[in-house]
Design a binder for these strands. Structure first.
Lengths: 234, 234
DNA sequence: TCATTTACATACAGTCTGGACTGTATCATA
DNA sequence: TATGATACAGTCCAGACTGTATGTAAATGA
């Protein structure tokens, strides 16, 4: 009898091969993490209940509890996943602007649209807010921030140079990131023209002292942490 | 028998006069609103349950339900209260820096310490995050933002002037507010030196093109909305 | 092939929340 | 001072959430 069911499934899925335990686990974790980040962005931290997450992931409550014994564990891993996604986005973003005409404007626009005006950033905001009352989460997010900054800093100094100021490109871009954070936080409360004018305003203000180095089109020297982080993504 | 209890209270408080209904209501509302904002800042939006709020306010569940039929109503009124407090802080802040030596630095520092690195701003962050899923709250906060900006804009253009840029002082300060928002959001995740350097970095960058007008020590022309908002504070 | 581990499913227990509801004391006023 | 309105207190309840305990099927390894 235990032979029949698999045979039927084979007929339907056309793929009789059953996945290995590891594959199953990984796929399940991925679904749970994606659903968690989605839920954080859409339903907020408070609205992200385990029930809603597993419903969104289309799995059972038991699957979640098997892979993550507590809600805290799931959220911590989701933070880690958020970091990895951010790394990858930042990487492709930096590569994509390396051939742009007006690199500064392109970088600002791309950062805004692909990193801060996104559901992923909303999820980040929720986690940051929650980290105010969760020491463990605060640790994780703090480490995450430092790692992203450590990646971005050399890249910024590689692609750009400053003149007539004591600030290095990395300092300028850290300012930009704070600006974008603030804009992103209140994006839904501000009008589009205001946001647009803030983005352009920063570019206009930064252009005289911050410019892209000429002839740099190859990717920057990647810090070791870059690959180290990504290697576990699979 | 109903005579005795009041008499005893009189002996204790030394003030036999019973408050009028209106006084009682107002005092109770004030306690509830203060407790709500406190709770938002400390316990977060999710942690701000009605039970915790009334416990913090030291009143009964019945008192809260009498003045605010729903949690939503309480939070909306708390948002309004947040606006009023912000108005007042901004007002005293603007007055306090009018006699400072380095007005720009003083303004930035004061804004940071008295407005963004405060529990009140944490409460604001919680409300903004929650407003993502609450249209009514979003409306209220949006209106609040616009009103604060409407107050700040003429004041900025009154105290300061720009040169060598198309941006007006108000645009610069809007940028500053976004920067401070972003810093404030992640304040607990960033190191103090990073924050300090960002504040100073903005001042250094803005100084060449933004300076305080000479000899302006009197308060700016207040917009009508200023008094209109404050008159209900009592 | 069989025992053991892993992956997942379901049911349940205990806690908490928000809103409804009831009761009581105080105030305003005619 | 009688009467209705207001201010507050305390309790109850239906629903939701998390963690746990238990059951089953699939995969792994000997």
């Amino acid at each position: 009898m235990s032979r029949i069911a698999p045979a039927m499934k084979t007929a339907i899925t056309e793929k009789p091969r059953r996945r290995t335990q590891e594959e199953r686990s990984e796929a399940m974790r991925k679904r749970l993490l994606a659903a968690t980040l989605e839920s954080l962005a859409e339903d907020g931290y408070a609205g992200s209940t385990l029930s809603s997450i597993v419903r969104r992931a289309g799995v059972s409550r038991g699957a979640q509890v098997h892979h993550y014994p507590s809600k805290q564990a799931l959220l911590l891993d989701a933070s880690e996943d958020l970091l990895k996604r951010t790394y990858r986005r930042l990487g492709t973003l930096l590569l994509s602007i390396s051939e742009e005409d007006n690199r500064l404007q392109a970088l600002v626009d791309a950062c805004w649209e692909q990193m801060f005006a996104t559901p992923l950033y909303r999820a980040y905001c929720e986690l940051v807010a929650a980290s105010q009352r969760d020491e463990e989460l605060a640790q994780a997010l703090g480490a995450m921030l430092r790692r992203v900054m450590a990646l971005f800093e050399p890249a910024a100094n590689y692609y750009f140079e400053t003149s007539g100021t004591k600030l290095r490109p990395a300092d300028m871009f850290l300012q930009l990131s704070c600006l974008l954070s603030g804009l992103g936080l209140q994006a839904t409360l501000l009008s589009k023209p205001v946001i647009r004018s803030q983005l352009d305003g920063w570019v206009r203000q930064a252009s005289p002292i911050l410019r892209a180095r000429k002839g740099i089109t190859s990717p920057p020297p990647r810090p070791a942490s870059w690959d180290r982080v990504l290697e576990t993504v699979g």
